[in-house]
Protein backbone atom coordinates (compact mmCIF):
# COMPACT_ATOMS: atom_id res chain seq x y z
CA UNK A 1 0.00 0.00 0.00
CA UNK A 2 1.17 3.54 -0.71
CA UNK A 3 0.07 6.84 0.75
CA UNK A 4 -0.85 9.76 -1.46
CA UNK A 5 -2.21 13.18 -0.61
CA UNK A 6 -4.70 14.76 -2.97
CA UNK A 7 -5.89 18.29 -2.23
CA UNK A 8 -4.68 17.89 1.35
CA UNK A 9 -6.59 14.64 1.87
CA UNK A 10 -4.49 11.58 2.52
CA UNK A 11 -5.50 8.19 1.17
CA UNK A 12 -3.86 4.79 1.20
CA UNK A 13 -4.13 2.86 -2.03
CA UNK A 14 -2.65 -0.19 -3.64
CA UNK A 15 0.63 0.10 -5.49
CA UNK A 16 0.05 0.81 -9.17
CA UNK A 17 -3.20 2.75 -8.62
CA UNK A 18 -3.47 5.81 -10.80
CA UNK A 19 -3.88 9.27 -9.30
CA UNK A 20 -7.40 9.45 -10.73
CA UNK A 21 -8.45 6.19 -9.12
CA UNK A 22 -6.87 7.20 -5.85
CA UNK A 23 -8.93 10.39 -6.03
CA UNK A 24 -12.06 8.36 -6.76
CA UNK A 25 -11.37 6.40 -3.60
CA UNK A 26 -11.56 9.69 -1.72
CA UNK A 27 -14.53 10.80 -3.79
CA UNK A 28 -16.24 14.15 -4.02
CA UNK A 29 -14.69 17.36 -5.25
CA UNK A 30 -11.12 16.13 -5.47
CA UNK A 31 -11.92 13.74 -8.31
CA UNK A 32 -10.62 15.12 -11.61
CA UNK A 33 -13.03 14.97 -14.54
CA UNK A 34 -12.31 12.29 -17.14
CA UNK A 35 -13.66 12.36 -20.67
CA UNK A 36 -11.67 9.56 -22.27
CA UNK A 37 -10.58 7.33 -19.39
CA UNK A 38 -13.03 4.54 -18.59
CA UNK A 39 -11.97 2.14 -15.89
CA UNK A 40 -13.83 -0.77 -17.46
CA UNK A 41 -12.04 -0.36 -20.77
CA UNK A 42 -8.39 -1.43 -20.72
CA UNK A 43 -6.28 0.82 -22.90
CA UNK A 44 -8.51 3.87 -22.49
CA UNK A 45 -7.33 7.20 -21.13
CA UNK A 46 -4.55 9.73 -21.51
CA UNK A 47 -6.02 11.49 -24.52
CA UNK A 48 -8.49 14.19 -23.57
CA UNK A 49 -6.20 15.83 -20.96
CA UNK A 50 -9.11 17.07 -18.83
CA UNK A 51 -7.85 15.06 -15.87
CA UNK A 52 -4.52 16.91 -15.74
CA UNK A 53 -3.32 17.48 -12.20
CA UNK A 54 -0.32 19.07 -10.57
CA UNK A 55 2.14 16.82 -8.77
CA UNK A 56 3.65 19.00 -6.06
CA UNK A 57 5.87 16.20 -4.79
CA UNK A 58 6.72 13.08 -6.78
CA UNK A 59 7.24 10.75 -3.83
CA UNK A 60 8.84 10.61 -0.39
CA UNK A 61 11.97 9.23 -2.02
CA UNK A 62 12.08 12.01 -4.60
CA UNK A 63 9.94 14.89 -3.37
CA UNK A 64 10.68 17.13 -6.35
CA UNK A 65 7.57 18.49 -8.07
CA UNK A 66 6.85 17.26 -11.59
CA UNK A 67 7.50 20.09 -14.04
CA UNK A 68 4.46 19.43 -16.22
CA UNK A 69 0.89 18.73 -15.28
CA UNK A 70 0.23 15.02 -15.63
CA UNK A 71 -2.75 13.00 -16.84
CA UNK A 72 -4.07 11.64 -13.56
CA UNK A 73 -5.79 8.73 -15.32
CA UNK A 74 -2.56 7.24 -16.52
CA UNK A 75 -0.02 8.30 -13.91
CA UNK A 76 0.49 5.82 -11.08
CA UNK A 77 0.80 7.17 -7.55
CA UNK A 78 4.02 6.87 -5.57
CA UNK A 79 4.36 6.64 -1.83
CA UNK A 80 4.37 10.14 -0.41
CA UNK A 81 3.14 11.78 -3.60
CA UNK A 82 1.38 15.10 -3.15
CA UNK A 83 -1.21 15.96 -5.78
CA UNK A 84 -3.11 19.18 -6.30
CA UNK A 85 -6.32 19.18 -8.26
CA UNK A 86 -8.97 21.62 -7.02
CA UNK A 87 -6.32 23.45 -5.01
CA UNK A 88 -4.12 24.21 -8.01
CA UNK A 89 -4.55 27.38 -10.04
CA UNK A 90 -2.43 25.89 -12.78
CA UNK A 91 -4.78 22.94 -13.06
CA UNK A 92 -7.80 25.20 -13.11
CA UNK A 93 -6.34 27.38 -15.83
CA UNK A 94 -5.08 24.58 -18.03
CA UNK A 95 -8.23 22.50 -17.65
CA UNK A 96 -10.11 25.53 -18.83
CA UNK A 97 -7.78 25.53 -21.81
CA UNK A 98 -8.54 21.90 -22.55
CA UNK A 99 -12.26 22.59 -22.36
CA UNK A 100 -11.84 25.46 -24.78
CA UNK A 101 -10.02 23.11 -27.17
CA UNK A 102 -12.71 20.46 -26.85
CA UNK A 103 -15.38 23.03 -27.59
CA UNK A 104 -13.49 24.74 -30.42
CA UNK A 105 -14.88 22.51 -33.12
CA UNK A 106 -17.88 21.30 -31.17
CA UNK A 107 -21.16 22.44 -32.75
CA UNK A 108 -22.73 23.48 -29.41
CA UNK A 109 -26.01 22.10 -30.71
CA UNK A 110 -27.19 21.09 -27.26
CA UNK A 111 -30.79 22.21 -27.93
CA UNK A 112 -31.15 19.47 -30.54
CA UNK A 113 -28.80 16.93 -29.03
CA UNK A 114 -30.14 13.78 -27.39
CA UNK A 115 -27.24 13.75 -24.98
CA UNK A 116 -28.21 17.09 -23.47
CA UNK A 117 -28.80 16.73 -19.78
CA UNK A 118 -26.49 13.80 -19.37
CA UNK A 119 -23.55 15.06 -21.38
CA UNK A 120 -20.15 15.07 -19.75
CA UNK A 121 -18.96 17.83 -22.02
CA UNK A 122 -21.87 19.98 -20.88
CA UNK A 123 -20.90 19.34 -17.28
CA UNK A 124 -17.28 20.09 -18.04
CA UNK A 125 -18.15 23.27 -19.89
CA UNK A 126 -20.34 24.35 -17.00
CA UNK A 127 -17.54 23.74 -14.49
CA UNK A 128 -14.56 24.97 -16.44
CA UNK A 129 -15.67 26.70 -19.60
CA UNK A 130 -15.76 30.39 -20.27
CA UNK A 131 -18.78 32.44 -21.22
CA UNK A 132 -17.55 33.26 -24.67
CA UNK A 133 -15.68 31.25 -27.25
CA UNK A 134 -12.60 32.81 -28.75
CA UNK A 135 -12.73 30.38 -31.63
CA UNK A 136 -13.78 32.42 -34.62
CA UNK A 137 -12.73 30.03 -37.35
CA UNK A 138 -14.99 27.84 -39.41
CA UNK A 139 -15.82 24.66 -37.54
CA UNK A 140 -14.98 21.24 -38.82
CA UNK A 141 -18.22 19.62 -39.95
CA UNK A 142 -19.41 16.20 -40.98
CA UNK A 143 -22.78 14.85 -42.03
CA UNK A 144 -24.43 12.66 -39.40
CA UNK A 145 -24.52 9.05 -40.50
CA UNK A 146 -26.13 5.79 -39.47
CA UNK A 147 -23.81 3.07 -38.40
CA UNK A 148 -26.34 0.29 -38.36
CA UNK A 149 -30.07 0.39 -37.61
CA UNK A 150 -29.76 1.51 -34.04
CA UNK A 151 -26.83 3.89 -33.76
CA UNK A 152 -26.42 7.39 -35.12
CA UNK A 153 -22.98 8.97 -35.44
CA UNK A 154 -22.75 12.74 -35.14
CA UNK A 155 -19.05 13.15 -35.80
CA UNK A 156 -19.35 16.92 -35.24
CA UNK A 157 -19.88 16.30 -31.57
CA UNK A 158 -17.15 13.72 -31.13
CA UNK A 159 -14.21 14.55 -28.91
CA UNK A 160 -12.19 11.54 -30.08
CA UNK A 161 -12.02 9.85 -26.71
CA UNK A 162 -11.60 6.46 -28.41
CA UNK A 163 -13.90 4.82 -25.83
CA UNK A 164 -16.18 3.34 -28.50
CA UNK A 165 -13.15 1.87 -30.21
CA UNK A 166 -12.11 0.25 -26.96
CA UNK A 167 -15.64 -1.09 -26.46
CA UNK A 168 -15.44 -2.77 -29.84
CA UNK A 169 -11.98 -4.11 -29.06
CA UNK A 170 -12.95 -5.38 -25.65
CA UNK A 171 -16.47 -6.70 -26.23
CA UNK A 172 -16.56 -7.93 -29.78
CA UNK A 173 -14.56 -10.20 -32.01
CA UNK A 174 -14.24 -8.13 -35.12
CA UNK A 175 -14.13 -4.41 -34.79
CA UNK A 176 -15.50 -2.68 -37.87
CA UNK A 177 -15.14 0.95 -36.85
CA UNK A 178 -12.17 2.94 -35.75
CA UNK A 179 -10.40 6.29 -35.96
CA UNK A 180 -9.53 7.30 -39.49
CA UNK A 181 -7.35 10.10 -40.81
CA UNK A 182 -5.29 12.09 -38.40
CA UNK A 183 -4.89 15.38 -36.61
CA UNK A 184 -7.77 17.76 -36.94
CA UNK A 185 -9.20 15.56 -39.68
CA UNK A 186 -9.37 12.46 -37.49
CA UNK A 187 -12.81 10.90 -37.34
CA UNK A 188 -14.64 7.91 -35.99
CA UNK A 189 -15.83 5.91 -38.95
CA UNK A 190 -16.29 2.51 -40.49
CA UNK A 191 -14.72 3.96 -43.66
CA UNK A 192 -17.11 2.15 -45.95
CA UNK A 193 -20.37 3.02 -44.17
CA UNK A 194 -20.50 -0.43 -42.75
CA UNK A 195 -23.17 -1.35 -40.27
CA UNK A 196 -21.81 -2.10 -36.86
CA UNK A 197 -23.62 -5.31 -36.26
CA UNK A 198 -22.90 -7.35 -33.20
CA UNK A 199 -24.73 -8.19 -30.00
CA UNK A 200 -22.94 -5.62 -27.88
CA UNK A 201 -22.57 -2.66 -30.23
CA UNK A 202 -25.10 -0.62 -28.26
CA UNK A 203 -22.60 -0.19 -25.46
CA UNK A 204 -20.81 2.29 -27.69
CA UNK A 205 -23.69 4.63 -26.96
CA UNK A 206 -23.34 4.19 -23.23
CA UNK A 207 -19.62 4.91 -23.15
CA UNK A 208 -19.80 7.95 -25.44
CA UNK A 209 -19.30 10.95 -23.15
CA UNK A 210 -20.98 13.29 -25.63
CA UNK A 211 -23.78 13.11 -28.18
CA UNK A 212 -21.65 11.63 -30.94
CA UNK A 213 -23.15 8.16 -30.66
CA UNK A 214 -26.82 8.14 -29.85
CA UNK A 215 -29.59 5.58 -29.71
CA UNK A 216 -31.61 5.84 -32.92
CA UNK A 217 -34.58 4.15 -31.28
CA UNK A 218 -34.70 7.03 -28.80
CA UNK A 219 -33.91 9.94 -31.09
CA UNK A 220 -35.96 13.05 -30.37
CA UNK A 221 -38.45 11.03 -28.32
CA UNK A 222 -37.95 13.06 -25.17
CA UNK A 223 -35.43 15.07 -23.21
CA UNK A 224 -33.82 12.78 -20.67
CA UNK A 225 -34.77 14.98 -17.76
CA UNK A 226 -38.45 14.35 -18.41
CA UNK A 227 -37.91 10.61 -18.05
CA UNK A 228 -37.93 8.49 -14.95
CA UNK A 229 -35.01 6.12 -14.65
CA UNK A 230 -36.04 2.77 -13.19
CA UNK A 231 -33.88 -0.16 -12.26
CA UNK A 232 -35.10 -3.30 -13.95
CA UNK A 233 -34.08 -6.77 -14.99
CA UNK A 234 -35.08 -9.53 -17.32
CA UNK A 235 -33.71 -12.93 -17.98
CA UNK A 236 -31.33 -12.78 -20.89
CA UNK A 237 -28.97 -15.40 -22.25
CA UNK A 238 -26.58 -12.84 -23.71
CA UNK A 239 -26.00 -10.47 -20.80
CA UNK A 240 -26.94 -10.03 -17.15
CA UNK A 241 -30.26 -8.51 -18.16
CA UNK A 242 -29.82 -5.84 -15.50
CA UNK A 243 -30.50 -2.41 -16.92
CA UNK A 244 -32.04 1.00 -16.39
CA UNK A 245 -35.32 1.77 -18.12
CA UNK A 246 -35.98 5.40 -18.95
CA UNK A 247 -39.74 5.72 -18.68
CA UNK A 248 -42.44 8.22 -19.34
CA UNK A 249 -45.58 7.06 -17.60
CA UNK A 250 -45.78 3.39 -18.42
CA UNK A 251 -43.83 3.60 -21.61
CA UNK A 252 -40.17 2.61 -21.94
CA UNK A 253 -38.44 5.23 -24.05
CA UNK A 254 -34.92 3.97 -23.70
CA UNK A 255 -32.86 1.23 -22.10
CA UNK A 256 -29.30 1.75 -20.91
CA UNK A 257 -26.79 -0.05 -18.77
CA UNK A 258 -26.60 0.87 -15.09
CA UNK A 259 -24.07 3.62 -14.81
CA UNK A 260 -22.29 5.08 -11.82
CA UNK A 261 -21.59 8.72 -11.06
CA UNK A 262 -18.62 8.69 -13.41
CA UNK A 263 -20.83 7.52 -16.24
CA UNK A 264 -19.27 4.08 -16.22
CA UNK A 265 -21.27 0.86 -16.26
CA UNK A 266 -21.58 -0.65 -12.83
CA UNK A 267 -20.13 -4.01 -12.01
CA UNK A 268 -22.74 -6.74 -11.83
CA UNK A 269 -21.64 -10.00 -10.26
CA UNK A 270 -18.06 -8.81 -10.36
CA UNK A 271 -18.08 -8.03 -14.06
CA UNK A 272 -18.83 -4.80 -15.95
CA UNK A 273 -22.57 -4.74 -16.53
CA UNK A 274 -22.59 -4.22 -20.28
CA UNK A 275 -25.98 -5.01 -21.76
CA UNK A 276 -26.74 -6.70 -25.05
CA UNK A 277 -28.62 -5.15 -27.96
CA UNK A 278 -31.65 -7.36 -27.32
CA UNK A 279 -32.13 -5.82 -23.91
CA UNK A 280 -31.30 -2.35 -25.16
CA UNK A 281 -33.26 -2.10 -28.38
CA UNK A 282 -35.66 -5.01 -28.72
CA UNK A 283 -37.51 -5.06 -25.43
CA UNK A 284 -39.35 -1.82 -24.97
CA UNK A 285 -42.49 -3.33 -23.48
CA UNK A 286 -42.97 -3.07 -19.74
CA UNK A 287 -44.18 -6.69 -19.64
CA UNK A 288 -40.73 -7.86 -20.68
CA UNK A 289 -39.11 -6.47 -17.54
CA UNK A 290 -39.26 -6.85 -13.83
CA UNK A 291 -39.12 -3.30 -12.52
CA UNK A 292 -37.21 -3.01 -9.27
CA UNK A 293 -37.66 0.64 -8.35
CA UNK A 294 -36.35 4.13 -9.10
CA UNK A 295 -32.71 4.51 -10.03
CA UNK A 296 -30.84 7.26 -8.26
CA UNK A 297 -28.65 9.09 -10.72
CA UNK A 298 -25.73 10.26 -8.65
CA UNK A 299 -24.28 12.75 -11.02
CA UNK A 300 -23.72 16.44 -11.07
CA UNK A 301 -25.89 16.98 -14.06
CA UNK A 302 -29.35 17.98 -15.22
CA UNK A 303 -30.70 14.48 -14.80
CA UNK A 304 -29.59 14.19 -11.19
CA UNK A 305 -32.56 13.53 -9.02
CA UNK A 306 -33.02 15.38 -5.78
CA UNK A 307 -30.12 17.61 -6.50
CA UNK A 308 -31.93 20.65 -7.77
CA UNK A 309 -31.15 22.59 -4.64
CA UNK A 310 -27.40 22.19 -4.89
CA UNK A 311 -27.69 22.97 -8.55
CA UNK A 312 -29.43 26.25 -7.88
CA UNK A 313 -26.93 27.04 -5.18
CA UNK A 314 -23.92 26.57 -7.45
CA UNK A 315 -25.59 28.43 -10.29
CA UNK A 316 -26.23 31.40 -8.09
CA UNK A 317 -22.63 31.29 -6.96
CA UNK A 318 -21.49 31.35 -10.53
CA UNK A 319 -23.66 34.33 -11.43
CA UNK A 320 -22.46 36.26 -8.43
Amino acid sequence: MVKVTIDNIEVEVEQGTTILNAARQIGGEVVPPAMCYYSKLPGSGGKCRTCLVEVAAGSSADPRPMPKLVASCSTPVMDGMIVKNKTSDRVHENRGGVVEFLLANHPLDCPVCDQAGECHLQDLGYEHGSQKSRYEEEKRTFEPIDIGDTIKLHMNRCILCYRCVHVADNLTENRVHGVLNRGEQAEISTYIENAIDNDFSGNMIDVCPVGALTDKTFRFKSRVWFLKPMEAERSCNKCSGKAVLWMFGNEIYRVTARKDKYGEVEDIDGKPGWICNDCRFENKEVSKWKILGPRVIDRHSVISQGKYETKIETSTKKIN
Binding site: Y162, R182, A186
Partner: peptide, 18 residues
Protein backbone atom coordinates in the same frame (compact mmCIF):
# COMPACT_ATOMS: atom_id res chain seq x y z
CA UNK B 1 2.56 20.78 -37.17
CA UNK B 2 -1.19 20.85 -37.62
CA UNK B 3 -0.83 18.55 -40.61
CA UNK B 4 1.42 16.20 -38.64
CA UNK B 5 -0.52 16.08 -35.37
CA UNK B 6 -1.73 12.54 -34.81
CA UNK B 7 -4.99 13.90 -33.39
CA UNK B 8 -4.98 11.75 -30.31
CA UNK B 9 -4.94 14.38 -27.57
CA UNK B 10 -7.14 17.43 -27.60
CA UNK B 11 -4.66 20.27 -26.97
CA UNK B 12 -2.53 19.26 -29.93
CA UNK B 13 -5.33 18.21 -32.27
CA UNK B 14 -7.40 21.34 -31.72
CA UNK B 15 -4.64 23.75 -30.74
CA UNK B 16 -2.36 23.22 -33.72
CA UNK B 17 -5.29 23.55 -36.11
CA UNK B 18 -6.47 26.70 -34.38
Amino acid sequence: YSHESCGQCSPCREGTGW
